[in-house]
């Protein structure tokens, strides 16, 4: 039935021409909850707009993505969305798409190819995310001295590097805030908990820690458990701010155990479809990078409601 409706919509819109009707989406895979949510939201956004989305899961392999794009070109889709698994090696397949006059929009990751080979890239500014988190802490402590421990992402990964430097930018010039310990928690709950335990041991059983900054929510969720097991209250004894806005952190915020999170929106497809529509209807060239909003959520932003809204998205 859904398929019938979709094809009916396809026929109806195909008559009007200009708008993208069939869009191919080459997704990396489903290695994290966030990416599963991105897939779900992309399908939702396509359905809302009456777009026929051809979805291809590459299972973390670039060759699968290249094969998928070639098959999209062969099928004559109107546009292609690509979440590239790596940054290099896209030149020839992007050129093929360009020759076939099919616009390509990159989602959430960048490629090293020439900018003329794709229409635009939709993504989040990782440094800005760190800045939003840092600014929240600056405002929250309002000049009071604050010793911060930091749970970094995987050593050397770009989110870890950028979210660290963004946070440092934000607290620069606020000498009351100081990062006293910083270690990698590999973006995982288990490591987040283990490393937080060692922070607590090293900082007088946690008495000397004023706030925790975690590069993602999963590590924060693990660290919150470590703080509770050490007999302290996360959210009041130790402030907790992290990045991503996954459902579980909203549960923690609703329980008063986390204070703030910065959203890395999985809705990259919405802006991508909007840009495609504008481009196809009136030929407006979008900017080469469309930055998504890094929205700050605190305990005042209806965390239990946010949890309900997100839990069905496949996180």
């Amino acid at each position: 039935m859904k398929r019938l409706l979709a094809s009916a919509a396809f026929v109806a819109f195909a008559a009007s021409g200009a708008v993208a009707q069939t869009v191919g989406f080459s997704q990396i895979g489903s290695e994290s909850g966030w990416r599963a949510a991105e897939t779900t939201l992309t399908k939702q956004q396509a359905e809302e707009r009456g777009i026929d989305l051809k979805f291809s899961d590459a299972q973390q392999k670039q060759e699968n993505q290249i094969a998928a794009i070639r098959s999209f070109i062969a099928q004559g889709v109107d546009a292609i969305l690509l979440a590239p698994v790596v940054a290099t090696g896209w030149d020839s397949v992007l050129e093929e798409a360009k020759e076939a006059e099919i616009p390509v929009v990159l989602l959430d990751r960048q490629v090293d190819s020439d900018k003329s080979l794709y229409l635009t890239a939709v993504g989040s500014d990782l440094v800005h995310e760190g800045e939003v988190a840092g600014q929240w802490l600056v405002d929250k402590v309002a000049g009071e001295p604050c010793r911060v421990v930091e749970l970094q992402g995987t050593t050397g990964s770009s989110p870890a590097i950028d979210r660290k430097s963004g946070f440092e930018n934000a607290i620069k010039g606020h000498d009351n805030i100081e990062i006293v310990r910083s270690q990698t928690g590999d973006f995982t709950r288990a490591q987040g908990k283990e490393v937080m335990e060692s922070f607590l041991q090293a900082e007088g059983g946690g008495q000397d820690i004023c706030a925790l900054y975690a590069h993602n929510d999963d590590m924060a969720v693990g660290a919150i458990q470590a703080i509770k097991e050490a007999g302290l209250k996360p959210g009041s004894d130790i402030l907790v701010v992290s990045i991503d806005a996954v459902p579980d952190i909203f549960q923690a915020m609703a329980a008063g155990e986390a204070n703030a999170t910065v959203e890395l929106t999985p809705n990259m497809a919405g802006p991508a479809f909007d840009a495609l529509k504008a481009y196809m209807e009136s030929g407006t060239e979008p900017a080469k990078f469309l930055q998504t909003e890094s929205k700050l959520y605190t305990q005042d932003d209806d965390p239990s409601g946010e949890y309900e809204r997100r839990k069905g998205l496949g996180y």
């Binding site: 290695e31 994290s32 590999d186 995982t188 709950r189 288990a190 490591q191 908990k193 999963d218 969720v221 693990g222 458990q225 579980d248």
Partner: peptide, 14 residues
């Protein structure tokens, strides 16, 4: 034990 520790099953990383 690992799952009970973080109160969740993290298949990617456990």
């Amino acid at each position: 034990v690992a799952t009970a520790d973080i109160r969740g099953a993290d298949s990617n990383n456990a």
